[in-house]
Every structure is written in structure tokens, then in C-alpha cells.
Write a protein that binds this DNA or RNA. Structure first.
Lengths: 230, 230
DNA sequence: TGGAATGCATCTACACCGTAGACTCTAGGC
DNA sequence: GCCTAGAGTCTACGGTGTAGATGCATTCCA
């Protein structure tokens, strides 16, 4: 016969293929749908075989976060650091909207691993943004401060936006109305009043405005002390 | 005999007691240690009995987040909204440091429930902060913008800080050094260089500075347009 | 050419999980 | 006395991650 069926579903495996289909599974069916057995089934393999490409389930999750973060492009030599940070912010936001089910991983995986032991791919953004800022003239110390404020805000915004986001726009309003109607009017007057505003959340604009405030504030504060960069 | 053993471990149950011990279990042994069986064991009850106080595991998790958020005090009538927001930020930060294992719940639970259907306790901060801002003179619309920027930044900071936080301070440095040493020097020059700075992260100061920037920026931007509040 | 060794795929098994459904037991009302 | 309602318990089902043994194919060396 021919070589062992490379045809169809049983192409040769490697870590990337495994992670990629794991990501697809998460994207389409949610995080809790990702089990070794389900993944094995998706790859038409024995579940045990996957342990060759991921030490355990946690490693699989780490791999997925790495895979997703690799989609984020950063150019550490761009002299216009503010523009660059702004672009990165929007890119990461879109990435999150493209993979909403992965966001919990993005924010929780690092909580259970000391910084230095994290998958390298997840540290790349940190390193590159530091590089960008230092290149732009910041003292390393201050670069770290800026990074923290910036990335903190960015992650916070993404979480915030996703918390208000529901898949279908129409259903969004409906569900919101439905849900909000449930709230006791006595205890939640403002929330109820703001229902229509809540319903059309322009995430990109809101993010952009926040970033503007933060960046100009940071730049001013740091250069005001005669420390660095512009 | 006496009444059915109220003595010792078998005090009368109610939802609060169940949630409280669940929280203790999570605090002391981590999120994944919280199973119906383990919790039943901690309460010296049959696991099935818990379903009287929590519809299912998800409801249990929601209850825990509610319990924790209830520890947060907000005074919506304080005229000094900036000071109030600043205090809340620090309080929430301390709350997170006191219950680090609960933080993943705080940030991920809302992702899987439309806003209006969330446990009321978790919506209280939103409602009260809106109240605070409106009381201070903001238009409801703008109050929502301020809330989003503020709360987003706050959550982002907490996540950021916890990601760098390791339980024992001494071990922190050791692990950091150990971990960072693992990083290829070629690819992570800045991260390695900043190791000592990373090691002593003054979270409160960093949070305070970010909040300052954000609040003054927000106030300026909004009042600059002649829209509201001081 | 005949092993021996090496790696991959598969199978079985164990301990755990959430929870549906049936069962027992107890307290109270009549 | 019995009846009912509800709380507590037990068993069982279908799922989970993963250790360890087993089968299979290939490659390497004598």
C-alpha cells in the first residue's frame, strides 16, 4: 500500500498543527470544549498521542496563548512610539475580538506561572515594547513604567469591552433589555437608564481615547521631570 | 439525644456559609481545588446536599465573586469623586491581593454572562460608581465613559501586578532570577537587564500614578468640552 | 541477514469530576 | 395514628487528565 494515510485528516502531526486545531476548537466551541479526547477526535488520533506534542493540558493552553500572541506584530524600531503603541493596542483589540474564547487564557495563564518561566512567545510583546520605548529615548526604568500603565490599560479595556459584548448585535440589545429589565429599579436606576448607551459601545473609539489620555499623560509626566523621550 | 449535631463542623447550612467556606477553600488551595466533593467534605456534608444552596458549580463560582465584591465599600454621595475613585482603586487592589486565587473569577465570569443576567452583587460597583459620577455632575453618558476607562485601567493594573507577583518575596527574586536566566540573552536583552527593577514592583505607587494620569486626563477632556464636573 | 534498539500509536485503567434521579429519614399537620 | 413535605443521602452515568503496559514499524549495527 501507499505510505500510512497522509490523505485527508491524517496528515503528519507536529506541535503547531496540534495547537492550531486546538485553537480552532476553542474558537468554535469554547474553552471547556477543549479536552484531550475531543482534540484527539478532531485530529483523528488517539488522545494519548497528543502528549507527544504537549506535556499536559496546561502546556496545551500555554501553547494556544503563544500561538495567538504570535499573531501580534510589533516593530521595535519605529521612532514614533506613540503611534506604534496606539496601533498595537488596536491590533490586540481586534485579535481579542477574533478569538474571544482565548481571552480568559491570555489573562489567567500568566497568573499561574512566574514571569521567567512563561512560554517565550508570551514574553515577546513585553520585550519588544520595552525595546520600542528604550529606542525612543526612555530610560529603561521609565520604559517599564510606561509599559505597565499601557499594557494594564489595554488588557483592562479588552476585558471590559468583551464583558459587554454579546455575539449577535440584535440579540445583544434584546438580551440587554431583557436582562436589565430584571434589575430592581430601586437599586439600579443608573444602569437601567443607560441601557441604550450600553447597547452601542464603540470599543475602538473608547480604547483610542483612553490610550490618548494615558500616553499624553505619561509623556508629559516623564518629560516634565526632564527624564526622557518625545 | 440532643438536636441533630449543631456541634462542631455540622452547623446549620445556608447559602452564605457554603459560599464562605468555598471562598476559604479557594483562598487556601486554589481554584481547581474547589469541587463539589471537596467542598462537601469541608462542610462535612454529602456533596449532593450543596445543590440546595447553589444550582450548579457555575452558580457557586458566581456566588464567590459576589461575596468578594461585597467586601468593597463605595460611597456614591461623596462629592470628591476623584478621591473616592482613588480610594476604591486601592481598596480593590488590596482585595485582589487578599484573594489572588479569586481574581481569575472576577475577570472571567462576566465574560460568560450577559451584563443584565449577572449576579446583582457584581453589578453593584458599576451602579454605584455611575451614581458617584452623576452625583458629581457628570452627564450620564460621560459618566459611563469615565467608568469604563477607570475600571478598565484598574482591572488591567491588578492583572498586571498579580502576574508579576509571587507569594514569597525572597523566593520572588530567586525565581525571577532563575527564570530570567533561562531566557536567551540574544532575544530578551531588555527583560534581562530590567530584572532587578521587575523584582521590586511597588504596585500601589504605580496604580496611584496611573489613576492620577487617567483621572486628570478624563476631567480635563470632559470639562474642556464644557460638558461636566469638577 | 538477523537481531536489537528505538521511537510512535494505541489500549487499558485509575482516580477524579458534575450532576440526574431514586431513595430514606425526619418533622410537622391533622 | 397516618400523611405529606422537605432535607439529606446514595448510586450511577458519562465525562475528564493522564500513568503505564502493550503492540507495531522502522532503523541501526554486527
Amino acid at each position: 500500500m501507499s505510505a500510512p494515510q497522509d490523505t485527508d485528516s491524517r496528515k503528519r502531526l507536529n506541535r503547531e498543527v496540534v495547537l492550531q486545531t486546538a485553537l480552532e476548537l476553542v474558537d468554535s466551541e469554547g474553552l471547556e470544549a477543549l479536552s484531550m479526547r475531543r482534540l484527539g477526535q478532531a485530529l483523528d488520533r488517539d488522545p494519548m498521542g497528543l502528549y507527544r506534542y504537549a506535556a499536559n493540558r496546561a502546556d496545551l493552553l500555554d501553547g494556544i496563548t503563544e500561538l495567538v500572541l504570535n499573531e501580534l506584530a510589533i516593530f521595535p524600531t519605529d521612532p514614533d512610539w506613540q503611534a506604534q503603541l496606539r496601533r498595537i493596542a488596536h491590533d490586540l483589540r481586534l485579535l481579542a475580538l477574533r478569538h474571544p474564547n482565548v481571552v480568559p487564557l491570555l489573562v489567567t495563564r500568566p497568573l499561574s506561572t512566574p514571569l521567567g518561566l512563561r512560554p517565550l512567545g508570551t514574553l515577546r510583546p513585553l520585550e519588544q515594547i520595552l525595546g520600542l520605548l528604550i529606542e525612543a529615548g526612555f530610560e529603561p526604568n521609565n520604559a517599564l513604567h510606561v509599559y505597565r500603565a499601557y499594557y494594564g490599560f489595554l488588557y483592562g479595556h479588552i476585558l471590559n469591552e468583551l464583558q459587554e459584548f454579546i455575539v449577535d448585535a440584535e440579540e445583544n440589545v434584546a438580551l440587554l433589555r431583557l436582562g436589565l429589565h430584571r434589575l430592581p429599579a430601586r437599586d439600579f436606576p443608573h444602569l437601567r437608564e443607560l441601557a441604550p448607551v450600553l447597547a452601542d459601545y464603540d470599543g475602538a473609539a473608547e480604547l483610542d481615547e483612553g490610550i490618548s489620555i494615558l500616553l499624553s499623560g505619561l509623556a508629559e509626566r516623564l518629560t516634565g521631570r526632564g527624564v526622557a523621550a518625545g
